[in-house]
């Protein structure tokens, strides 16, 4: 097989989250410089959901962001960026299409499973199937050049390895899904888009009529957590707590990290829109981030049985209720400021 070397002049910038990182890097390639935080904000990326009916390792999933792909879709839609998407039943066809795209110099995003990604440290691996990476070329040995926002360098992976992660199985298999920007997007008028995106985020956190999402969802988890030790015994309760904290801090679902990223977005938004009150909201959001971090520290203390008296599940639950109050205040204020 003749495999010529290809390097797309794509600037790889690591990011806190794969989706926003890939989107930000891709837009940069097409001449729209938006920071990761800005993409996150435009995608109305702050969220909370305690999904009792989706199970991972037999325990409920807690998510600190919308469904995978949602931030990306919302941000690109708002910006008017046209995306091409494809998925393939036939793995060879998926790889042929990828080859054709990079040969045309088009950076190509892909959804992959992280468990078999060779450069992932063992401890970070789990069967999560909605990780985003961008393919930006191929080297002389036919290995693919991958811009993965979690890595500080451009990674190379073989065709076989790429096939394995593109066709990972389990919950939400990626099925070779890929996407690329189809049309050179125009420069957006950011101020209005920012208002729209904040408005939408307020709605997501405050107004969705379901008890398990948004601010209400945080309270829901708080109430349930209180009952865990009694309902399932100490050991299972601790396993559930570990799961929450892992999801809180895991790559791509980050709880506190996402609060800080939203704070960074609000700060940028204040500059772009000239609405200085957004800076105050940014500060309040930073506090919410600090509170989530505090929760993670206390949670870890409980399951590590570290020195000092750890908090009980009751007290952890109270921390969550405080966070819910804090975030509710932030979004109520934002809603007033935006007032669309």
């Amino acid at each position: 097989m003749d495999r010529k070397e290809i390097t797309i002049p794509f600037v790889h910038k690591p990011a806190a989250h794969c989706e926003t990182g890939v989107a930000s890097n891709m837009l940069q390639f097409y001449g729209i410089p938006l920071s990761e935080a800005m993409v996150f904000g435009l995608g109305s990326g702050l969220f909370f959901a305690h999904l009792t009916f989706i199970r991972m390792h037999g325990m409920a999933v807690t998510s600190f962001r919308p469904l995978p792909g949602r931030i990306f879709n919302r941000a690109t839609k708002l910006l008017g960026v046209k995306l091409h998407r494809a998925k393939f039943r036939d793995p060879d066809k998926a790889m042929d299409t990828l080859d054709a795209l990079i040969e045309q110099g088009i950076p190509t995003g892909m959804l992959v499973g992280v468990f078999y990604l060779p450069y992932f440290p063992q401890e970070y691996r789990f069967h999560f199937n909605a990780h985003n990476i961008t393919c930006i070329g191929r080297n002389a040995e036919g290995k693919y050049l991958i811009s993965d926002p979690v890595s500080t360098r451009i990674e190379t992976i073989s065709r076989e390895e790429l096939l394995k992660v593109r066709y990972a199985l389990g919950t939400y298999p990626p099925k070779g899904r890929m996407y690329w920007i189809a049309q050179q997007p125009e420069k957006p008028g950011l101020a209005l888009l920012i208002r729209k995106a904040i408005h939408r985020n307020c709605r997501d956190m405050l107004d969705i009529p379901a008890p398990i999402v948004g601010v209400k969802g945080i309270r829901f988890l708080a109430r349930r957590m209180k009952k865990w030790p009694k309902r399932m015994g100490e050991k299972k309760a601790i396993a559930n707590l570990v799961q929450v904290i892992r999801m809180l801090e895991e790559i791509g679902t980050g709880g506190a990290g996402f609060r800080y990223m939203y704070a960074a977005f609000l700060q940028e938004a204040a500059t772009v829109t000239g609405e200085s009150r957004l800076n105050e909201c940014s500060a309040a959001m930073t506090e919410a981030g600090d509170m989530w971090r505090h929760f993670a520290v206390e949670g870890a203390r409980l399951f590590k049985k570290r020195a000092g008296v750890p908090l009980s599940f009751d007290e952890l639950s109270q921390l969550l209720l405080n966070i819910a109050d804090k975030e509710e205040t932030v979004f109520r204020t934002l809603k007033k400021i935006i007032n669309i």
């Binding site: 690591p14 990011a15 806190a16 450069y119 440290p121 970070y124 500080t152 990290g257 704070a263 960074a264």
Partner: peptide, 20 residues
């Protein structure tokens, strides 16, 4: 290991930046 966590943190004047 080339994987890093990226954090958003504030500098002395309170501006957010990315930190590995």
């Amino acid at each position: 290991i080339s994987v890093r966590d990226v954090c958003y943190a504030q500098d002395e004047s309170g501006n957010y930046t990315q930190v590995f």
